[in-house]
């Protein structure tokens, strides 16, 4: 739409008040504190910063965090697509309740999720005791981290996909079928391309949540340095050793990654919304 700065007088009241209120709150609570982090980090030279950020333990923690997050987000992309499809397309008893349950990871405090998953997947837990005989250890290993992050990320994928699958017009599939496409062909050639941006957005949302996740992971991870220590935990342990500068350097790395992911999500959503609408940016908005 159009952009204009000419606001000599608005009919609707409260523009200045509401925008001012928002900007002050946002600046005081969020922007200034975050820039405080950069300010603190600026005490370091680039070389010192790099030495901390690329230390052995730090690098190992990035590998664990990113590796587990990518795995968890991938599992969620696959199963989230199935869950979303099943919830939109099929009818079965208890569907409403199950649909509501998908949001559990949003509603359940992460600490509760953490201790519960750790208990379930421990060697004597409900699930762990069936896996142990097969030589599969989940709790207190990197696999446990993937489990916790899968729990945390699931709703992001499902909730991003559901409305998109709901919006698919049945005529599109009917048209494909009437033109002789098999069900698989219809799915891969007609449906999947339409769903794909949303799937990617859901994946990125789940991934970006996983990177920063702390509460649900620490109970099940085992937290062995170099093996199953995630970056947020490394920040905490540096703090506990009064290594504030070290913690700050790692936090800056995490914050930069957050920014990049936030911008990617925005770009993805913009792409999903605009990719087929062409470039018909007509200059003027309000006409008669």
């Amino acid at each position: 739409m159009f952009v204009t700065a000419a606001y000599r007088r608005q009919v609707l009241p409260g523009f200045g008040l509401s925008l001012g209120c928002t900007l002050v709150y946002l600046s005081l609570l969020i922007l200034l504190p975050l820039s405080g982090l950069a300010f603190k980090a600026s005490n370091l030279t680039l070389g010192e910063f790099w030495a901390i950020a690329s230390g052995e333990r730090a690098m190992a923690s990035y590998r664990v965090t990113f590796g587990a997050s990518v795995l968890a987000a991938t599992i969620n992309a696959v199963f989230g697509l199935i869950v979303a499809w099943v919830l939109v397309r099929y009818s079965f008893p208890g569907k409403r309740a199950i649909d509501a349950l998908v949001d559990l990871p949003f509603a359940l405090p992460t600490a509760v999720a953490g201790i519960t998953l750790a208990t379930l997947y421990a060697g004597n837990g409900w699930i762990g005791k069936h896996l142990e005989p097969w030589g599969i250890k989940v709790a207190f290993t990197p696999v446990g981290i993937v489990v916790a992050l899968t729990f945390i990320g699931l709703p992001f994928v499902v909730r991003t996909l559901q409305p998109v699958i709901e919006d698919i017009e049945p005529e599109v599939e009917e048209a494909a079928a009437s033109l002789g496409a098999s069900r698989l062909q219809t799915f891969t050639r007609v449906l999947l391309p339409g769903i794909f941006p949303a799937l990617l957005t859901g994946f990125t949302l789940a991934f970006s949540r996983s990177i920063g996740e702390y509460g649900s992971v620490i109970f099940i991870a085992g937290n062995m340095p170099l093996i199953s220590e995630i970056t947020p935990l490394l920040i905490i342990s540096k703090l506990e050793q009064y290594d504030v500068i070290g913690a700050t350097a790692l936090a800056v790395v995490m914050l930069l990654i957050s920014f990049v992911l936030l911008l990617s999500v925005n770009a993805l959503q913009w792409w999903a919304a605009n990719r087929h609408s062409g470039h018909g940016g007509r200059g003027a908005g309000r006409g008669a």
Partner: peptide, 14 residues
């Protein structure tokens, strides 16, 4: 988008 741990740290720093 910001990790909760980073949020805590930010206010600790201030």
């Amino acid at each position: 988008a910001v990790s909760p741990v980073v949020v805590g740290l930010v206010f600790l720093l201030i």
